[in-house]
């Protein structure tokens, strides 16, 4: 547990110190939302559906950057090997990195939610509040996926280019479920109306946190 805290604390400190990357993450969310508004305004998209969709797209792409940061901090000076030869077990590394990724994504996500409300003329109301747990589920699922996959992509010639190619199709089911559930919450529908989507999100999270837990050891190790 102290080791978990040490790794997580170090990652958060590194992130705060290089403040520009958090700002870049928020800026990216902003840009994605703006671009989507421009792209959809002609089509006359409805507020809640389009807003939820835009929000999740922003999450997908800013999440990609955020999750990668959690592991790329270790590539700098070969420090990943320092972690591997240290007595810390791989599981602790995985959960520390997953938590760091989730925290980075959550920061960008909060900014994106505020911007979405403004751009899509929604209200800061109860529906928005009820959407937050759904977003949290989406963030955790993507964090779990991206933590494993960025360890994979870190080993390849193409580096982080391969990450979206692998992560986006894998994330589609959570994206579908997340957008549907978020839109339902925003339009004021009760939780029960989105129960099936929430269940899919939970299943997705369990599946990929579990898979990451079991498989991380294989992707992080050097041969």
């Amino acid at each position: 547990m102290t080791q978990f805290r040490a790794i997580l604390g170090k990652d958060l400190r590194l992130e705060i110190r290089s403040g520009e990357s958090t700002i870049a993450l928020i800026a990216l969310s902003l840009l994605i939302l703006v671009v989507i508004v421009f792209a959809l305004s002609q089509a006359g998209a409805r507020g809640t559906e389009a807003g939820a969709g835009a929000l999740w797209i922003a999450m997908l792409f800013s999440g990609m950057l955020g999750a990668v940061r959690a592991l790329s901090s270790e590539r700098d000076n070969g420090t990943i090997y320092a972690l591997l030869v240290s007595p810390v077990d791989r599981t602790t590394i995985y959960f520390a990195k997953l938590t760091a990724a989730v925290v980075f994504m959550a920061i960008a996500e909060v900014a994106a939610v505020v911007l979405m409300v403004l751009f899509f003329n929604l209200n800061f109301d109860f529906g928005l509040l009820r959407m937050l747990p759904i977003l949290a589920l989406g963030v955790i699922g993507f964090g779990a996926l991206a933590t494993v996959l960025s360890a994979v992509s870190g080993h390849t010639r193409m580096g982080d280019l391969i990450l979206p190619v692998l992560a986006v199709p894998l994330y589609v089911p959570a994206l579908i479920a997340g957008v549907k559930a978020s839109a339902a919450m925003l339009s004021g529908a009760p939780f029960t109306s989105a129960a099936i989507w929430i269940k899919i999100l939970i299943a997705f999270d369990l599946l990929f946190v579990g898979a990451g837990y079991l498989l991380f050891e294989f992707v992080i190790a050097e041969n």
């Binding site: 080993h155 199709p169 894998l170 089911p173 599946l207 041969n223």
Partner: peptide, 20 residues
């Protein structure tokens, strides 16, 4: 090893994809 992991993760994804 990396490919094996991705292959397994992808297969895990398939049932969720089908349902959703």
């Amino acid at each position: 090893r990396l490919a094996a992991v991705v292959g397994i993760v992808a297969a895990l994804d398939v049932p969720v994809v089908i349902v959703s």
